[in-house]
Design a protein around this nucleic acid. Structure first.
Length: 641
RNA sequence: GCCGCAGUAGCUCAGUGGUAGAGCGCAUCAUUGGUAAUGAUGAGGUCGGGAGUUCAACUCUCCCCUGCGGCACCA
């Protein structure tokens, strides 16, 4: 007999070999039907798998998060079964659960096509209808390897061979199909809700290594019911409408063209936004004790050899040999330039920490497949800064920088910021005592931030540990924006020094930090974050004055002049068009405020203000009130405080 | 870079082995209309680039470029 404890604290005795399904069935039929998987002593457990000794048991349904994951995992298996049925020349590899769904990687000489999806989905539905029981089997490792090799599943055999020695080899069987899998799984294929959909086809390297062959990955989404599936598909559609590439086109912010892959042609409105961001950052940096510098875009290649970029980053650098036979490179990073400014003349400990900011345009020859709108470009502008400080000042500087980053993100309404902490890699420079201190300083700042973070052990740069601040775009892709890195390397390579209190030369620690990261990427994130409807202070065009008839032309002209004098970005629309037409056009452009003026407004010197997103609702205000109200509203957040 | 898909007017897209079409936009004219599209007329394209197959290629084949979805990369 074994004793089972339930979540409500009750305990009951059962025969040895009892399964969660037996127990559920003994309580009620509906419970047995509803339960998809069990949690046994914190381990997920198949419903039919016999319990092994006294256990704590919880029965989970599709409404538990584990239940949804299970559904997605089974959807991946059903996909694999369907694909192998329809395309027998296909080998299976792995098929895990991901956000919102699952994927399965297949090996097959012939390419799948999205045209195959309909057929595959139909086959999946058949497998669900057949309601095959899903059975767990434990196999002998060596026999399993031989078996999977024999049936031509080389990838599975490789996976088994690489499993840790103690790990049991489990195989799940559904109908005449079976797959190596750790499990657990649903009791039967009929438990899989028909609320799945195959989404896209992609290439993916075997085991994520670009030296390996490329497999074909089929992505799918799966939910507990059709309503959730539809809601998810609707969310995706909505998100796609926010795509910065589409909005930038509609709003006339920038464009890209074939001759400049990964390069942005800024249009006046986009550039206004860009400059507004720079102006904001400049004020914030001034306030935080930074000075601003600017260094050359093009430098002799020898500088990059000294810095180590030639060796470590050379393939990504644009360089050229000029008629003077000197080789020059466009800077892929600003740091070596910053160090030159630091090194020009002798530094004293009294000058530290020295915080030098630079809005530097960097050029990187990124892999063609990495380019993505303005999120991943080949020429971009960093709000970069290098802080030179003593080891003692390091911790406080890190704290201040993290504070500044998060405060700035808040001004843009970003509250779901993720932080990644990467510590010392195997191959590194600098002694462990300094690494200890640097990692501790970053960790301390990280904890003080109080945000969710992940630690990537060994992922730090060879020259120091780093923090990365990650924002998510409209379609759920994560983009690194801000960064804070400790660097022992460059000060060493460029022999940076300061004279300490003791009169001796010392090596400063260097911090690299960027808050927006790339102005281009941050702009892209902002477009999607606000769906193009920027807060007034950021809006490239803050207000359009539109006339109803030409009777109001001279008044409208006067209004626009007054708005511009007040520092607002105002435009005038005197065209001989109906007001309906004008309102529609400026609404499509997501213009924040439309000031409609007709005879009435001209007579009593007022404005009829219409706000983006608020329909036909209008507010009649006097010109004076509008000026003061809008000016206040358009004040950047840092100047309002 | 790798796998797959795509590239037709400024934009969004339709189209066929016999040298192209729509809507919007643009231009001109008429219209002075109170909050999401007034009407008419017109201009605009070596169908991404190159080579090949063919009597004939925007259409079929190959190479290249660019973009899109992933993977790898992101010092």
């Amino acid at each position: 007999m074994i004793t089972i404890s339930f979540p409500d604290g009750s305990k009951r005795e059962y025969e040895d070999g009892v399964s969660p399904m037996d127990i559920a069935g003994g309580i009620s039929k509906s419970l047995a039907k509803r339960s998809l998987v069990a949690r046994v002593n914190d381990e997920l457990w198949d419903m039919q798998r016999p319990l092994e000794g006294d256990s704590e048991l919880a029965l989970l349904s599709k409404d538990d998060p584990e239940g949804l994951d299970l559904i997605r995992h089974d959807a991946a298996h059903v996909l694999a079964q369907a694909v192998q049925k329809l395309f027998p020349d296909t080998q299976v590899t792995i098929g895990p659960v991901i956000d919102d769904g699952f994927f399965y990687d297949f090996a097959r000489d012939e390419a799948f096509s999205t045209d195959d999806f309909e057929q595959i989905e139909a086959e999946m539905a058949k497998i669900v209808d057949a309601d095959y029981p899903i059975e767990r089997e434990v196999w002998d490792r060596d026999e399993a390897i031989v078996h999977f090799k024999e049936i031509g599943e080389a990838y599975k055999a490789e996976i088994i061979a690489d499993l840790p020695a103690g790990e049991p080899i489990t195989v799940y069987r559904q109908g005449d199909w079976y797959d190596l899998c750790r499990g657990p799984h649903l009791p039967s294929t009929g438990k899989l809700p028909k609320a799945f959909k195959l989404m896209k086809l992609a290439g993916a390297y075997w085991r994520g290594d670009s030296n390996n062959e490329m497999l074909q990955r089929i992505y799918g989404t799966a939910w507990v019911n059709e309503k959730d599936l539809d809601a998810h598909l609707t969310r995706l559609e909505e998100a796609e409408k926010r795509d910065h590439r589409k909005l930038a086109n509609v709003m006339d912010l920038f464009h890209m063209q074939e001759e400049g892959p990964g390069s942005i042609f800024w249009h006046p409105k986009g550039w206004t936004l860009f400059q507004t961001l720079i102006g904001y950052m400049r004020r914030r940096q001034d306030g935080a004790g930074y000075v601003e510098i600017n260094t050359p875009d093009l430098l002799d290649y020898s500088l990059w050899e000294t810095s180590g970029h030639a060796e470590k980053f050379g393939e990504n650098m644009y360089s050229t040999v000029m008629p003077d036979e000197r080789k020059y490179a466009l800077k892929p990073m600003n740091c070596p330039g910053g160090v030159q400014v630091y090194n020009h003349g002798q530094r004293s400990y009294r000058e530290l920490p020295l915080r030098m900011a630079e809005f530097g345009k960097v050029h990187r020859y990124e892999p063609s497949g990495a380019l993505h709108g303005m999120m991943r470009v080949r020429h971009f502008t960093q709000d970069d800064a290098h802080v030179f400080c003593t080891p003692e000042q390091l911790q406080q500087e890190c704290l201040d920088i993290v504070d500044l980053i998060l405060d700035i993100y808040q001004d843009f309404g970003f509250d779901d910021v993720r932080i990644k902490f990467s510590d010392r890699p195997e191959a590194r420079i600098g002694d462990d005592a300094v690494w200890d201190k640097s990692e501790a300083a970053l960790m301390h700042a990280l904890k003080a931030a109080g945000l969710p973070y992940s630690v990537n052990p060994g992922e730090g740069a060879f020259y120091g540990p780093k923090l990365e601040f990650v924002l998510r775009d409209a379609i759920g892709r994560d983009w690194q924006c801000g960064t804070l890195q400790v660097d022992f390397n460059l000060p060493e390579r460029f022999d940076a020094a300061y004279i300490g209190e003791d009169g001796d030369k010392h090596r400063p620690v260097m911090l690299h930090r960027a808050l927006f990261g790339s102005l281009e990427r941050f702009t892209g994130i902002l477009i999607e974050h606000y769906a193009g409807a920027f807060p007034l202070w950021l809006a490239p065009v803050q207000i359009v004055v539109a006339t109803i008839t030409s009777d109001a032309d001279s008044y409208a002209l006067e209004v626009v002049e007054a708005l511009k004098s007040a520092g607002l970005r105002a435009e005038l629309d005197l065209r001989n068009e109906k007001i309906n037409y004008k309102v529609r056009e400026h609404s499509v452009q997501k213009i924040h405020v439309i000031a409609v003026v007709g005879r009435k407004e001209a007579e009593d010197r007022s404005l009829a203000l219409r706000r983006f997103g608020q329909g036909a609702k209008q507010e009649i205000v006097s010109l004076e009130d509008a000026l003061s109200g809008l000016t206040h509203e358009a004040t950047p957040p840092d100047l309002k405080r």
